[in-house]
Computed example of a mutant assay.
Amino acid sequence: MLDVRRLHMLKTVAARGSIAAAAQSLALSAGAVSQQLSALRRDAGVDLLRPDGRTVALTEAGRVLLEHAERILAAVQEAESALAAVKGTVGATVTLAALPSTVDRRPLTVARIVAPALTALGSHHPQLTVTCHVTDQAQLRELTLGTVDMVLGQWYHHLPDATPRGIEVYPLLDDPLIVVTAADRADERPVALRDLAAHSLAVPPPTTDCGQAILHACHQAGFTPTTRYVTADIAAQLTLARAGLATALVPRTAIDPATPGIRTAPIEDRPILRLPFAATRHTETANPTTTAVIAALRTAARQGRAMHLPAD
């Protein structure tokens, strides 16, 4: 009979491209992974992997087995969720990965969403331990591999949806980018995106989701932005705006509109929406632990948003 743990190793090796990378991901030695894959090969009675330069690739049999392995592993996940639902109690552990967006050298996502959510969870579910990894590798693929239980990420509505199959996404809030200038350079009236064609902008690199979304929105508005300053550091963008050197486009929840020396204004015609989300592996039966964590993240995100809305 095929071993579920070995099927998971095969899936991880296929995704990572090498036994060494898979071993690092699984917190095992390369020798241990090789031994388990050799045992899986004996169980299957056919080669599942072949050398491919410095990496390995699936054989035809390996591809067939991987297709079935993904369904088997999803069924195991579904069974675990169904049992948890029957028990009706929040579990003991969750591993969460979050992107390290920062402002004023503080982890923005951690300060505004994760920390308040964990505080609330600690009060309502003291038996639950949440391990949080703040990492650039907070990718949805990590969910499919089982490296983490949940990802706190972000998506921009100008970009195509790239959610992998089998992943459930839970939107936390809409967080539009706002126009930030020096306090003496503009008023707080809404700005048409096309008006920014005459501005020197401080924006994230085009290799980032935010940078891509800004470029795409500007192109849709009929112009190519003048990006004189390129930085993903929100604090640096605000410094440049405060000095009158550039106009910044910054998520609304990232700053306090009352910050001295700057003025903020919404984009009225072509809003650029940052959409923070929590994501988990999809199951037909809701897992009480997942439900509790998502509810805490959603509450924290919305409370954080309310704190950073301009006063009427």
Rank of each mutant, 00 (worst) to 15 (best):
A213S: 08
I178K: 09
A198R: 14
H199F: 03
Y156S: 02
C218M: 02
L173R: 01
D161E: 14
C210Y: 02
V180L: 12
R194A: 15
V203H: 01
D209M: 10
D184A: 15
I178R: 11
A192P: 00
A162M: 12
V148D: 00
G211K: 07
R194Y: 07
L159Y: 08
A183Y: 04
R165S: 11
R165H: 13
V191D: 08
G211D: 02
I214N: 03
P176D: 08
A197D: 04
A197K: 10
A182G: 15
T207M: 05
L215I: 02
L152N: 02
L172Y: 01
S200E: 15
A182K: 14
A162P: 09
V151F: 03
A202L: 09
A192S: 13
A162W: 08
R165E: 11
A162E: 11
G211T: 00
P164V: 05
H219Q: 06
R194H: 13
S200C: 15
G153V: 02
P206N: 12
P176F: 11
L177T: 02
V203C: 05
V179F: 09
V151D: 07
A197H: 10
C210T: 00
D195V: 07
V169Q: 00
A162L: 13
D149V: 06
P205I: 00
L196E: 04
L173V: 10
D174H: 13
S200H: 14
E168K: 09
I214A: 00
A213M: 04
I178V: 15
D161G: 04
H216G: 04
Y156I: 01
Y170K: 11
A186G: 15
P164R: 12
A182N: 15
W155T: 08
I178D: 06
D195R: 14
W155P: 00
P176Q: 11
P190C: 14
L152W: 05
D161I: 04
A186H: 14
D149H: 09
P160L: 11
L172N: 00
V179E: 02
P205L: 07
A197V: 06
A162G: 08
L215H: 07
G166A: 13
V180Y: 06
S200I: 06
W155C: 05
D149T: 05
A217I: 03
T163K: 12
A192N: 12
I178N: 08
L196I: 02
C218R: 04
P204Q: 04
T181P: 02
R165K: 13
D161P: 01
H216I: 07
H216A: 12
D175Y: 06
Y156P: 03
Q154A: 12
A202M: 10
L201H: 01
R189C: 06
V151Q: 05
I214E: 03
T207L: 08
L201N: 03
L215D: 05
R185Y: 00
Q154N: 11
P171N: 12
V169N: 01
A202V: 13
A198C: 02
H158V: 00
A186F: 05
V169E: 05
D184M: 12
D175G: 03
V191K: 07
L201Y: 02
A186W: 09
